[in-house]
């Protein structure tokens, strides 16, 4: 079962790299939504006895990360009439290389973080850290608001992966915290994206430069 889980995590890491390498926003959204679905399946695979809480988490994750948010972002994208992030601050190839190097680095680094016996051999920690890193690269390196939102969601996916380590022990509250955060944050971000678009006629955050020293 652990190997199945590791395969899924490896897939999620591969999707990180796709997200870093693509210039087309629809592919970025698709990569993110597939990652969301994969993440949603994981708790069902790893828990020894399925109870309603685990199933609820899985359903909610697939629903929010895999369906609802990508749908909202697709709509925002269509209404703004853009499908490419043309001039990123960090180019596609450099960000891909950065992401790959970072993934290797966290693989090495996470060896120094001791795991419990029944978590050993799991890729959860490096997978989580690699996604967090990917999220930050996208947040910093992209200029379109939608790409940045995708970056933030991949960052959140990384944190969710880490949260799976605590799935058996911590109360549901922390898990609920993630979903709450995710839905509300993107909901709010969505509203803002809408406003930015009306205000600036594009979703280019480079135009947000009135405020500086």
């Amino acid at each position: 079962m652990n190997s199945m889980l590791n395969n899924l995590i490896a897939l999620a890491i591969g999707l990180n790299l796709i997200a870093l390498g693509t210039s087309r926003i629809p592919s970025l959204i698709r990569a993110m939504s597939v990652q969301g679905v994969i993440l949603g399946i994981m708790p069902v695979l790893m828990d020894h006895h399925l109870d309603w809480r685990v199933i609820a988490i899985a359903v909610a994750t697939v629903g929010v990360k895999g369906v609802a948010i990508p749908h909202m972002l697709n709509r925002a994208m269509r209404s703004a009439n853009i499908d490419r992030d043309m001039e990123p601050l960090i180019g596609y190839v450099p960000s891909l290389l950065l992401g790959a190097a970072g993934t290797i680095a966290v693989m090495v680094l996470s060896r120094y973080l001791p795991l419990l016996p029944h978590h050993s051999g799991s890729l959860l920690v490096p997978g989580a850290l690699a996604s967090v890193l990917t999220g930050f690269i996208l947040l910093i390196g992209r200029t379109k608001a939608i790409s940045q939102v995708c970056g933030y969601l991949i960052l959140e996916n990384g944190i969710y992966l880490f949260g799976l380590l605590l799935l058996e022990s911590t109360p549901l509250m922390v898990e609920a915290g993630i979903l709450l955060d995710l839905t509300v944050a993107v909901f709010v971000i969505g509203i803002i994206v809408d406003r930015i678009q009306r205000e600036f006629d594009s979703l280019d955050t480079r135009k947000l430069t009135a405020l500086r020293e």
Partner: peptide, 20 residues
């Protein structure tokens, strides 16, 4: 709006890091 966007991005990242 610009200030709000920056607040969301930076503040959101901070919140994410503290959850991690």
């Amino acid at each position: 709006y610009e200030a709000t966007w920056k607040y969301l991005l930076v503040g959101g990242s901070g919140i994410a890091l503290s959850l991690l």
